[in-house]
Design a protein around this nucleic acid. Structure first.
Lengths: 339, 339
DNA sequence: TAAATTAACGAAAACGTTTTAGTTGCATTT
DNA sequence: AAATGCAACTAAAACGTTTTCGTTAATTTA
């Protein structure tokens, strides 16, 4: 086992000072060329690599960025993560991921842990637990310490920081508008409770599209799941109770479950009933028929978030100006709607 | 913006030495109780938290573990990751993720970056690029430096380290055996090139099951995709050329694509043709009919890998003994096979 | 009373860097 | 010959901890 070699070892071995070694390795003009050669050759021979931790301590910069997401086994978040990782890596940053598991407590613990020097900045999507509790002190503490923070997708109005979101309202609006153009009359919305910021936005878009097109906004046509967990019974009750010819779902899972349910009841998609779902993930692509989806451009979102964060980290300007980048959703048409 | 407070600040403010502050905060017996109270109160008031980087430098332990996976937008890997993260977090470790994107070069770069002090150990699945190149020097360098390494799923025979895998051969064997019991006569295998260790194992299980049951092993019934990318044409050609009544696929995507193709041709699943796929992911669950799947127990795999790694990191025993934990695959039966 | 013990604290080294501010010895200038 | 300039190097501080080894002064022991 060959232990890691340090500047001190090289210095001792070559009979020069540590500073000389450090400068020689940086090709400093201060150092004579024969000494430089000697040092560099020795360093290469013994495969010297500077210790990141020591450099971090010296520079007060870790070249790590902390990513906190509610769930990793989730297509949209992994897509965003890929964007973050891509950009960050290209800029020489590593990514430390913590999963809040939709829990307020784990979010707080993880942030505090990372905030003590381990990272240069945060990128995160707020957990549903936190959105429910509506307590953002952990975020405020971090920003007050001067640690840059970029929120994506699940954001909070009153946090002063950079944000990257998609225009969820418009996504829903466009979807419902398409349903109406296709002649759909009873358009349902399947969603979660409203404390999730994105669900709230999507519900607004749904309502606005109906009203703008002179249609009735009927709360009976909205199915709200109390949690992310699927509940077959609620689906069954809903479709038994309401006659529906189009469904907008805030996520793929709810949409796919509903599709399978109505197919089981003998309905034809899209002839009898039509579906559009948020998040253009694997399920949408491989469902039968394919699920028309509102793409959220997660990878791009991640790249932008990382770009904004790293810019803030590197050019530590004191003026507190924050941007909110709003991406436009795209409708990916598949077999679950008329073409 | 309130800057982070350090031991030095507290010491200066309270007119004591840094060592006294450090000890007082650790409730050392050496320090008088009134001094301790004073220091602790001050620290709490100004929300003192020790700097992780400084501690890392001092202890030569970062409490970070590096995870290198080929792809993050991939159900199995995220599942494993969740297991790793769960266990690691509970033990006070953070997880730094790097995505090799199936590329040898990125794998090497990422490992070298992290190996310079940023992490205490690695958990990784080898990229296909690396398996193709069959060059594992970067792994050897890391282990030679005394950095613990745990490989999972995609492992390499000749690397001396701990490993966590599933019995891929048995998974395939059991699937094919089931096909045979169900009366299937022409059982196909859809796979990748054999340089991927898991594909090789699965192919072996496929063959063994056929031969053990007195059936013919016919290479024409094997469809090999040259890459992870799906190629519709190959599927079309294959099913046009070969008459097949059962398909074992090394992943979900290939299986789902094939199912859709044969359904498009008017075949009934499972009456005319039956499917089993590796990786029990979302697609299997939500396909119609549901895809009978060989579950790889990713989360458990991640937890075990993390457990082994952290054990090695913390009890740095010099004896070089390595374990290989083999998990048993489970067949999850769904509509794509007879019950 | 002198010596030994103890409680309470501080100085300093160490982890591995980077960087500023010297310090040499030698060659050039006046 | 003294002063200047320069090339090539080193010492030391700094980043924020932890920890070992002192060092006090007060207290106990013989």
């Amino acid at each position: 086992m060959k232990r890691k070699i340090t500047l001190k070892h090289i210095a001792r071995e070559l009979g020069v000072s540590i500073s000389t070694v450090s400068k020689a390795l940086k090709n400093s003009e201060e150092i004579g060329s024969d000494t430089k050669e000697k040092v560099q050759a020795f360093a290469k021979l013994y495969n010297y690599k500077p210790n990141n931790i020591a450099i971090s301590l010296k520079n007060k910069r870790t070249k790590n960025i902390g990513v906190i997401i509610p769930d990793i086994v989730h297509h949209f978040f992994t897509t965003v993560f890929r964007g973050i990782e891509n950009y960050a890596n290209a800029k020489g940053y590593n990514v430390i991921v913590c999963v809040s598991d939709e829990s307020f407590d784990r979010e707080v613990i993880n942030m505090e842990l990372l905030a003590n020097g381990s990272i240069d900045g945060f990128i995160m999507a707020i957990s549903s637990g936190t959105q429910l509790k509506n307590d953002y002190n952990h975020l405020k503490e971090v920003t007050e310490q001067g640690i840059p923070l970029v929120l994506f997708d699940r954001v909070a109005e009153d946090i002063k920081c950079d944000k990257v979101i998609i225009n969820d309202r418009k996504g829903a609006y466009n979807a419902v508008t398409k349903f109406i153009k296709d002649g759909r009359k009873r358009i349902a919305l399947i969603t979660t409770e409203e404390y999730i910021s994105v669900s709230r936005e999507r519900a607004t878009g749904y309502r606005d599209a109906l009203l703008d097109n002179g249609m009735e906004y009927n709360e009976n046509l909205i199915l709200k799941f109390p949690s992310m967990e699927i509940n077959e019974q609620l689906i069954e009750d809903f479709f038994a109770r309401e006659k529906v010819d189009a469904v907008l779902s805030v996520n793929e899972i709810f949409a796919i479950h509903s599709m399978r349910y109505v197919q089981g009841k003998g309905l034809k998609i899209p002839e009898d009933i039509s579906f559009i779902g948020f998040t253009d993930g694997l399920l949408s692509k491989y469902a039968s028929p394919g699920l028309t989806a509102i793409a959220q451009h997660g990878e791009q979102m991640g790249e932008i978030a990382a770009e904004i964060l790293i810019e803030k980290v590197e050019n530590h300007m004191e003026e507190e100006t924050y941007v909110t980048r709003v991406l436009e959703p795209t409708l990916i048409e598949r077999g679950s709607t008329f073409n």
